[in-house]
Design a binder for these strands. Structure first.
Lengths: 377, 377
DNA sequence: GCGGCGGATGAATCTCACT
DNA sequence: CAGTGAGATTCATCCGCCG
């Protein structure tokens, strides 16, 4: 028997033995949860309908149609109807949770505030809100808002008194403390991981990435724990639970989704002990906006920019743009204009006068990069 | 008068003139907002009390202390009291907002879900939830949760129909020519920016960084706009508003905070005009008819138009229409027809051959726009 | 085999002035 | 106030094809 098995705590199930098979239940989540025994679940992960309230169609600038989430299951008559639905499933989930269980819910600004308020009303105790930052979100095609680049997860214990599971040491080890923050950077689910039907089209419109669920399970559950997912969808929670030695009860109303998840689950192997700890955190070179240099006071609005030979001048504006003659635009666009070039790296082209002489504005970016180092994971 | 001034829309205030002095009002925010004229505010930034459960000092709108009985703490009643308080100040703020005004609220998981749900119930229309990621958050000492490394801001229009202000192009130009995302990385307020009392201790426990407010104002307000802050605290919103040529009405209940913010505000200088002039959005640029381009001789009648790949051809007619095969119509309609698309921007779709190669007809429009700008200067 | 290029796509509350 | 039409609008990533 390996040493890692010896480290397993006494109340936990011995690896490879006695962990109940993960299963997909096809049916309405509230009715099915009511059939489960009270106090039988260690962790809940829920990805409920977001109630997006979309109207009309949206096209990309290249005229292609955005394949929106307009499914029947995401339609609610009113906020009130959505609230009633939310209260009902949260109450049903609460009943089957063990006293020390905790619950995760993921959502967007369309629904997450309602979910969070109702959670609190029902006596759940919020432990964190965790932000999933997408490094490849869909852009805002019409330029009317900020790119919706994140979703919010609420992590809550069944009550304020719950002795919930948080694998602090395990999470900290090997990850340089980075993943302990409440903001997580992860890509959306694409490529080979995305379930496709025989027609080659995505099976489910909102399949979550396995890495996201994996981090949730590794942080807030133990091996052999029973995980409940009331809105199983494409079965990601069940698949990740099985891979990481948890036992999942996944409920899904849609016949097609349920069938696809059973196929998916059958293809998943539980990982060997040694592999369970690693959760690679992707790093990237932090991008710095010129407006940040101004916001941080490193260059003042109104400051004069010049090229390295002091041949041309431009002036810095409060919003992070630059004025060159009558033209206004980014440091790059204005640098290109000043040189009558197609393109230009404004960071190295533009300089400011300092006590030590002319300095490229890139030197100020370096200051901010230094501070940002390590935060991108 | 500079061309940038001419581009400023009529309802905007002439730079350097007529921007009402920013002011700090000492008093209860609901009572003071009720004294302000309805529909008089362009933007609201609100940083309401966060965590009432821990502080235990919840006041009703009438200043009475909410009864927090030690041995029989009623959690539900406390949420209810906070909700009533939230509804009251949001309603008062909504009354003083112009129809096209928008509102920002910042909070943490303790209160933001309740605020967001009530916002929606009152008819506000959420535009984004924006995450302020702190690069230097307070660590979680007990190791029982993820480090709370962010706060959440909700940006909402007064109604779904509001034509809110969003300086999309300026924001994009200041951000490496990329759309600004919903997650912002900024340091917390420390060092010289942090207001200190005579005893050297911080004046206010939750002073927000000026960079955060600056980005909010630059993204969602115009010069001369009236900004309202019902929970002014250390006066950051007022200070940043004044610096960036906005007029702030700041309300603060606490005498000491109000006094400190007045001192702070007196030391703030408004930035010079050239740093504040707005980047005109393309949608606000003067309209140019295609027939004008022909009349001015920039493109001759009978000239051949083609797309950027030279796949299709059309011909220019003297009246400003375009012939594509047997069809005749506007540059936009014929561009759509050529692509079999629903719609098309003919200015960027159609090109003509020039000595320097293929040029979009938009470049000829730019010539005329440039002349028009010069004429008004 | 590899690199470049074109096409596809992801939980989306996504226009606005003028008649 | 509803209808109409000009015209403005995308980032990261993956996959497949072609040279």
């Amino acid at each position: 028997m390996s040493s890692s098995v010896m480290r397993t705590q006494a109340h936990h199930i011995v690896p490879g033995m006695d962990i109940p098979e993960s299963r997909i239940i096809q049916g309405d989540c509230i009715a099915e949860m009511e059939k489960l025994p009270a106090g039988s679940v260690d962790l809940v992960f829920a990805d409920p309908p977001y109630n997006l309230q979309l109207q009309g169609t949206l096209h990309r600038p290249d005229h292609s149609l955005v394949d929106a989430v307009d499914d029947e299951w995401d339609q609610f008559a009113s906020f009130d109807a959505y609230d009633n639905f939310t209260r009902a499933w949260l109450l049903a989930a609460r009943r089957v949770m063990k006293p020390n269980a905790s619950l995760w819910v993921i959502g967007s600004y369309h629904n997450i505030f309602r979910v969070g308020a109702i959670l609190q009303d029902l006596g759940f105790w919020i432990l964190n809100d965790v932000v999933w930052r997408k490094n490849n979100p869909m852009p805002n095609f019409r330029g009317r808002r900020f790119t919706n680049a994140h979703e919010t997860m609420i992590w809550a214990a069944r009550s304020a008194e719950a002795k919930y599971t948080f694998n602090y040491e395990a999470m900290k080890a090997g990850n340089e403390d980075l993943q302990l923050r409440s903001d997580w950077l992860l890509p959306i689910c694409t490529g080979g991981e995305r379930l496709k039907g025989k027609d080659g089209r995505k099976v489910h419109p909102t399949q979550k990435p396995e890495a996201l669920i994996a981090r949730v399970l590794m942080a807030s559950s133990k091996r052999g724990d029973v995980v409940l997912d009331p809105f199983s969808g494409s079965g990601t929670t069940a698949a990740v639970s099985k891979r990481f030695g948890r036992s999942c009860v996944a409920i899904e109303r849609d016949l097609e989704y349920a069938a696809a998840s059973r196929d998916r689950l059958a293809g998943v192997e539980t990982l060997p002990d040694e592999a369970l700890a690693e959760l690679p955190a992707k790093r990237e070179a932090p991008r710095v906006a010129f407006s940040t240099v101004i916001e941080r006071g490193l260059i003042a609005p109104g400051a004069v920019l010049t090229d390295s030979k002091r041949r041309v001048e431009a002036s810095v504006r409060a919003d992070g743009t630059v004025a060159f003659g009558r033209a206004i635009g980014s440091i790059h666009k204005m640098g290109a204009l000043a040189q009558e070039a197609e393109a230009c790296n404004g960071w190295t082209y533009w300089h400011v006068e300092t006590a030590k002489g002319l300095a490229p504005i890139d030197s100020f970016r370096a200051v901010i990069r230094e501070e940002m180092a390590g935060l991108s994971a």
